[in-house]
Every structure is written in structure tokens, then in C-alpha cells.
Amino acid sequence: MTIGSTPKADATNEDAALVARIAAREEAAFREVIGMHAALLHRIAYRMTGDAHEAEDIAQEAMLRLWDHAPRLGQRGEAMKLGPWLKRVAMNLAFDRLRSRGRTSDADVPERVDEAPLADEALAAEEDMLAARALMEGLPERQRAAIVLTYYEELPNAEAAEVLEMKLKAFESLLFRARAALRSAFEANEAQGGAA
């Protein structure tokens, strides 16, 4: 029999070591974490807000919070899980932006006006994308988050629940409602003849 740590434990140790190095203001470690997680945070933020610039701002802010809080996070030792923590921060920032947007604008879906002539194929793809975005943006924000995390990012329910700081059962119930709402909206769109 050999004694060794599991891959998960290794990942946790690695996270703890990275956070400790960031706390020591080691730029290389911070770059490593950006390389590992920034794209994911950006995708989550984009699908939550529907705005590429806002998504970049959210990803950047999440990373800078890691930089600021690394000394405190380092005290958690091996309990520190970098991925879920960053996703949680990014998701909360996205919620903040959506609420702020709701207070300052009535626009549901930003219409993208592109006056350049498009080939039929590109036009169809654009229409599909806008339809999907409209479907997602039609969901309440937490239901949208549940779909983004489990369908687009393929996170296990337990991890998605951790990101949203929910009990697993509550999250499963939320996901159940989100899927049902999404299907209803999709079927309604189809019945009306296609794209929203």
C-alpha cells in the first residue's frame, strides 16, 4: 500500500500555496492564478450580464479582491479553495451590477445595432445568439446563475450550490425551477415563430 494524497487534496494544497505566495506579493503566482481562472470568471460574468466590457470589469475586480484579501485568505490554510471563492466573488459582483442596472435602466435586453452588411449565415448566428441571450436574461438572476454554472460551466450541483452559498437541496430546487422556466420561455418563443 502506498500513502499519498488525492488529486483533490493536491489541488487544495496548491491553492493554499498560491494564496500564500500572492499574500507575499509574488507577481508570478498572481499571474498563474489569472491564467487559470480569469477566462472562466469572464464567461460567467458575461452570461450573467450579457455585456463583454462589464464582464471584463467583473473578472478584473474579482482578481484584485484576491490580491487585496490574500493575507487573510491565507489564514484558512488548506481549507482555502481558490476556484469556488473566485466564482462566488464574481457571481456576487455580477448580481451587484444587475441590481445597479435595474435601478438605473429599464432596458431588458440591450439591442445591438450593427449597420454593417452581414452574410445570411452570420446574420442567422447573430439572431440565435440574441435569442439565447434573451432567454437567459428572461430568467430571474439566481435561476440564471444556476443555469450558467451547471449547464454552461458544467459544475457539479454541490459546487454550484457552494458558489451561490446555498444548501444543496435549495440549489437543486432552484435549478429545477430554472430549467422549467427556461423550457417554458423557449417553447413560447418557438410557438411565436422563432427568435425573440
Binding site: F30, G35, A38, Y46, E56, L64, R133, M136, I147
Partner: peptide, 27 residues
């Protein structure tokens, strides 16, 4: 499924170039 294909159209753009450098600069 039809819903899956529809959702699949909602692709996220890539991060803009120099993203990491901008964050490092912000620190």
C-alpha cells in the same frame, strides 16, 4: 435538444489581449 442548440448559440467572447498585464498594473 432544440433548447440545448439554442442555448449553445450564447457563446462568450474571449478576454481581450493584455488582460493579465492590466490587472498586474492595477495592483
Amino acid at each position: 435538444s432544440a433548447l440545448g442548440r439554442s442555448l449553445g448559440a450564447y457563446t462568450a467572447p474571449d478576454l481581450s489581449g493584455g488582460f493579465a498585464d492590466r490587472i498586474i498594473a492595477a495592483t
